[in-house]
Computed example of a mutant assay.
Amino acid sequence: MTRGKWHKEALLGHIACMLEDWEALPAPSSLDDIMFDPENQDGSPVMVEVCQKTLKPGK
């Protein structure tokens, strides 16, 4: 599995768990806000696109 595909699968799994637990999904964060956090400043950002059609409760 490619690294990009792994990131998307991980995010979709996390979102699916949130939906199953009836948790509200947060609004997307801006890249600037993410990289401003000191914990993220040494990291490499990865952009993952998630379409609402992809989100299916129970999957």
Rank of each mutant, 00 (worst) to 15 (best):
T2D: 14
K59Y: 13
A24L: 09
W6S: 08
L55K: 02
K8E: 03
R3A: 14
N40A: 04
L11T: 06
V46S: 14
T54N: 05
K56M: 14
D42G: 15
A27P: 03
T2R: 12
V46L: 07
D37N: 11
W6L: 13
G4W: 04
H14I: 00
E39L: 03
W6V: 12
P38Q: 02
L19W: 00
E20W: 04
P26T: 14
E39Q: 01
G13A: 04
G58W: 04
Q52M: 08
D21E: 02
M1C: 12
L12S: 04
S30N: 00
H14V: 02
Q41N: 01
P45W: 07
P45I: 11
M1T: 12
Q41Y: 00
K59Q: 14
M35H: 02
L19E: 05
A10W: 13
W6F: 14
T2L: 06
S44L: 14
I34R: 01
T2S: 14
L19G: 04
D37V: 06
N40M: 00
A27M: 06
P26A: 00
D32A: 15
L55Q: 11
H7F: 15
G4C: 03
M18V: 02
V46G: 01
Q52W: 12
V46A: 10
E49M: 14
K8T: 13
M1V: 12
W22C: 01
E49F: 14
L12H: 07
E49P: 08
C51V: 08
P45Q: 01
Q52S: 10
E20Y: 00
A10G: 00
R3Q: 11
Q41H: 03
L12G: 03
K56V: 15
E9G: 11
L11Y: 03
D42W: 13
W22L: 00
A16Y: 03
K53D: 13
P45G: 04
D32E: 15
